[in-house]
Design a protein around this nucleic acid. Structure first.
Length: 342
DNA sequence: GCTGCATGATGAG
DNA sequence: TCATCCTGCAGCA
């Protein structure tokens, strides 16, 4: 999925695109018709993420945020699961991201493309000059339509309207989130202690625990493999046998990696000295140039150089040259270096 | 056209 | 541990 960094990015994107606006909410696919009715016409007053859960807060009577704040009446809770995704289009008044979500639909996740990219442009009505949202494509569970932009959600594992209490109940089940300012605890340091304690009170393999959202929220299959590699921790080692300071270091690294992912939209865990070097490609004009990604960073990393071990089974470890190993753990493919991760 | 995957999570047995 | 749900796309015929 869409790991936690993607969901935080979504919260920021949706908040920026629709915050403070009354939205038309619908379910073109029909499967969320009842929920859409509850939210239609309400104003988006909050957009938050905790781990892989996205919460969009709606207020019926408009954003009446008094001094003490205002209780948000309703929340739309979305979990993308393995293949959920949001796609966006707009009238060009703001840069609109093309899509954020499942890998294959995420073509433009790092792109902040102008809204007039062919095929994603909102059609302008010539006569009135008024923006018209494009027709929904595919099985769109939810459509959020504002005056200048539209967001379509497809394939979510969860999509429901909840109240404050139900939202709190979901959050109570979640471990600390490395991307949240305070980690979801009273401070980031407390969040780290919580993480370390949770891992160490179980003999379940640390590589399995990292996928447990009650241990740490937001980590998925890529971050688990990559963070364990960077920490030099054997994924199969029982949690209680991993040194506390090693786990603390792992947490600190997750904070850096995942916040970076949320900022750029791409997961890159390799250090420059461990990459194969600048990749050279032919650009459309036929010139040879160094490949770059599109987040604006001049030293952006091509996807094939982004990971140490994820999907690199059989290839030589970037650090020691030993073949990268793979094994199914907790119904997901685990990747690691048997030599570096003792 | 069809099949098999994919950065997930849950519930039953 | 398995089956199941959510959907689109790459890789095949």
């Amino acid at each position: 999925m869409p790991e936690g960094h993607t969901v935080h990015r979504l919260a920021r994107t949706l908040g920026g695109l629709f915050g403070g606006q009354a939205l038309r909410v619908s379910s073109p696919q029909g499967r969320f018709a009842a929920g859409a009715d509850l939210l239609d016409g309400a104003t988006l007053v909050a957009a938050e993420a905790w781990g892989k859960h996205l919460f969009l807060g709606f207020e019926r009577s408009g954003p009446s945020l008094g001094p003490g704040g205002t209780a948000t009446a309703l929340w739309l809770r979305v979990h993308l699961g393995l293949y959920g995704a949001w796609t966006f289009a707009g009238d060009g008044s703001a840069d609109v991201v093309h899509a954020i979500g499942a890998p294959r639909r995420r073509i433009g996740e790092r792109d902040s493309v102008p809204a007039d990219v062919p095929g994603h442009r909102a059609r302008a009505d010539d006569a009135a000059g008024e923006w018209v949202a494009p027709e929904p494509r595919g099985a769109v569970r939810v459509r959020l339509l504002g005056p200048h932009a539209v967001a379509d959600l497809t394939g979510p594992a969860a999509c429901e309207v909840v109240d404050d209490e139900e939202k709190a109940r979901v959050e109570d089940r979640l471990g600390p989130d490395p991307i949240r300012d305070d980690g979801g605890r009273s401070s980031l340091a407390d969040a780290r202690d919580d993480f370390v304690a949770r891992v160490r009170r179980s003999r379940v393999a640390v590589g399995q625990q990292l996928m447990d959202q009650g241990v740490v929220a937001g980590v998925g299959n890529i971050y688990r493999a990559e963070a364990l590699f960077r920490a030099g921790i054997d994924p199969l080692r029982p949690g209680r046998d991993v040194a506390a300071d090693a786990l603390a270091g792992l947490w600190d690294d997750l904070v850096v990696l995942m916040r970076d992912g949320a900022r750029t939209g791409a997961i890159v865990t390799t250090r420059a000295e461990h990459r194969d070097g600048p990749a050279v490609v032919d650009d459309p004009a036929g010139r040879r140039r160094t490949r770059q990604n599109t987040d604006g960073s001049p030293d952006a990393v091509p996807p094939e150089d982004a990971f140490y071990v994820y999907h690199r089974d059989g290839l030589p470890c970037r650090v020691c040259g030993a073949p990268v190993l793979t094994k199914e753990l907790a119904a997901r493919n685990l990747f690691w270096c048997g030599a570096c991760q003792g």
